[in-house]
Amino acid sequence: MDNQPPLRIVLAKVGLDGHDRGVKVVTRALRDAGFHVIYPGLWQSPESVVRTVADEDADWLGISLLSGTHMTLVPRIMQMLQAAGLRHVGVLVGGIIPEADVPKLLAVGVARIFGPGTPLGEIIEFLRAQGSRTHA
């Protein structure tokens, strides 16, 4: 570890989606890479995710979606983050996202989308390179 304070990242499962294997693997990988990972559990609402990001002063939000609801939930969360004054928080999306939806999610402000099979090191490197937008 260098002298940077650990990045705080909220990893969230939103909506009626019980597939948490992926997010748990990422949670462990980021923890072992020195991040502070806040995991609020399954079945979060967009409102509770935004509240968690705000109260925890997170640098990043990772949303895991395998339920096909990404085009409904992600834009809503992005909008609510803005409204809550959390424009500076970087957003990642992981899970099953069809190729055609990727540009649409990037267009609403998602920083990066990590699909199945992404090497864990790639996520870690990306976050380290981006660092904190909050405390820059």
Binding site: M1, P6, T27, R28, L30, R31, D32, A33, G34, F35, H36, V37, I38, Y39, P40, G41, Q44, S45, E47, S48, V50, R51, T52
Partner: peptide, 16 residues
């Protein structure tokens, strides 16, 4: 590593 999994929230109510 200095890393941490902060999971206490998962067991607490969220009333956003």
């Amino acid at each position: 590593t200095g890393g941490a999994l902060l999971g206490d929230r998962a067991r607490m109510p969220t009333h956003p």
